[in-house]
Amino acid sequence: MIRFDVTVTTMVYQDQPLPIRESIALSHSDGIAAFAKAGTWFTAEQRLAILAEARQAHLCTLCGKRKKALSPYSEKGEHDSRGDLPDNIVEVIHRLITDSGRLTHSWFTSVLETGLSGEEYVEIVGAVSTSIILDGFADALGIAPLEPGGPVTGEPDRVTNEDVFDGGAWLPMLNLTQEMTDTGLPTGPNILRSMGLVPSAIQHFFGVMRSHYALADLDFAITRSQTELIAARVSSLNQCFY
């Protein structure tokens, strides 16, 4: 008998008091489930630990001190971590969650010098940034955060994507054939290519992000200008140059 592996999406956010679009519910179902599966560089157990550590970061004393300091690099010490992941991974997760606006290239370089590979770094960035959307959305709506369930059997394939190029970012970017769109951006803007070393990280993050924003044909009950106002303000608060 032939057996097929079938992914069944479980619908989340049912029976919530506020109307959550089906596209968002579906993408969040897939997004949270992906934490319980092996990625390209991390096992399911490690990815679940990354999610748990991202949720822990808000309680970290060192991150609290750094947030208040004129420069986060003036505060030394140890993170209040769950203890499931190496220090260099905890550092990346906590800084992303609590103070991403003051990340610098020299910080990035120092993290890689601890032995973390660029590929591992990218997978962490994709996973943590996805968790920020999922948990932030639940928090903002006053509902319980989604839980990924237990780890699914499987191993990371640890294959580096060779189809990348040096596009001036801290990491190699995804190589894409580009066409200009009427939004003024190419079909593959740099943000989409930024995690090019790990295509599964792109899929994980943008699988969720696409239900929250699109450059065209966004079927939301707020206008394009209202959408872009929110986007611009959040970007500014995050000190995001891009």
Binding site: L18, P19, I20, R21, I24, V92, L96, S100, G101, L103, H105, F108, Y121, V122, V125, G126, V128, S129, T130, I132, I133, G136, F137, A140, L141, G167, G168, A169, W170, L171, M173, L185, P186, P189, N190, I191, R193, S194, M195, F205, V208, M209, S211, H212, Y213, F220, A221, I222, Q226, T227, I230, A231, V234, S235, N238, Q239, C240, F241, Y242
Partner: peptide
């Protein structure tokens, strides 16, 4: 209201990707 929150949450995530990868402007 939900859509506005969704946009805010999405950008609170995507800015982390941009900040952590140092991508240049298009």
């Amino acid at each position: 209201l939900v859509d506005a929150i969704a946009v805010a949450c999405g950008f609170n995530g995507i800015t982390k990707v941009a900040n952590a990868t140092g991508i240049p402007l298009d």
